[in-house]
Amino acid sequence: MESNEYGAAQALHDLDEGRAAAARRVVTPWWYHPLLGATIFVMVAGLSRGSTGLLVGLALVAQGLLFVLYRRLTGMWVNTFHIPGLKRTTVLTILFAYVLLAAGALLEHRVGVPYSLVVVGAGLAVAYVVYWRWIEQRLVQLWRA
């Protein structure tokens, strides 16, 4: 029974260590999310009237490269859909972003309000940076708990 007790306690400690290792790696350098936010701005603003598809294409390529860089920097890949406690927040955030995008497109292309998508793009970029800063802090809290 003594060895079981030691084994279980040590094993649970090792599990905590594994999660703490993930927490140490999940935080990206300060410039990573602002850069990704900038690509979101360029992509959404690129849907604005008068813009060419080239901007959207360039933003998508830049995003792809930044995702590769993320894997290089952290050595791992995190999908917040799969993290218990963050799935609902992730779904709601994505829904909110799509609603905002649809509203911007409607205002600009149907109602005729100029630069609506530029404003929405800027809002989404800032929201993305703030959201991911929060997600990283939340993940660190979850994995160090």
């Binding site: 094993a11 260590e17 594994g18 993930a22 890949w77 799969h82």
Partner: peptide
């Protein structure tokens, strides 16, 4: 167990 703990926290490592 340590491998599983690390992999279990994220999608892939």
């Amino acid at each position: 167990l340590q491998i599983c703990a690390l992999l279990g926290a994220v999608d892939s490592v």
